[in-house]
């Protein structure tokens, strides 16, 4: 079981935040096929958010083929995204590390690197959607 959190200041619709957090959990291997997502009521009780938001997020997950609702039982993960956990992506991390070294050499400081990373990530995120 995973917990959700909500950042209302992000400008990202709350239901999208939940979808994103499920995706992330899948990527990180925290969720796997067959796992049960918290019920709408549990999420609502934890986050004090609108149940429609949670339902909408779960519908979105179903639409993406990541989860399926079993009436009267709950919503379950149907597909795993990350077959391996992040630590198993050693080569990727090394590449990122090498890129960061290059960026520093090019004169970028930490905030600059972060901004560029976030921007690129968001763009690719939106493209993927």
């Amino acid at each position: 079981m995973i917990d959700f959190h909500l950042d209302v200041r992000s400008g990202v619709a709350p239901y999208q935040q939940i979808v994103r957090q499920v995706r992330q959990a899948l990527l990180l291997g925290l969720l796997a096929e067959g796992d049960k997502l918290p019920t709408v009521k549990e999420v609502v009780a934890k986050l004090a958010i609108n149940p429609n938001t949670v339902s909408k997020a779960y519908r979105e997950l179903e639409h993406l083929g990541l989860a399926a609702a079993k009436p009267g039982v709950g919503t379950f993960i149907t597909r795993s995204l990350g077959h391996a956990s992040l630590t198993e992506h050693g080569p990727l991390q090394q590449e990122l590390r090498a890129w960061m070294d290059k960026a520093r050499a090019a004169g970028l400081t930490a905030p600059g690197i972060e901004a560029m990373f976030q921007n690129t990530l968001r763009e690719s995120d939106e493209e993927e959607k």
């Binding site: 709408v40 009521k41 609502v44 004090a48 958010i49």
Partner: peptide, 14 residues
């Protein structure tokens, strides 16, 4: 405030 809204949302969910 958070507590109140949480209970309100639970009622809505139920």
């Amino acid at each position: 405030r958070r507590d109140f809204l949480r209970h309100l949302m639970e009622s809505v969910a139920e």
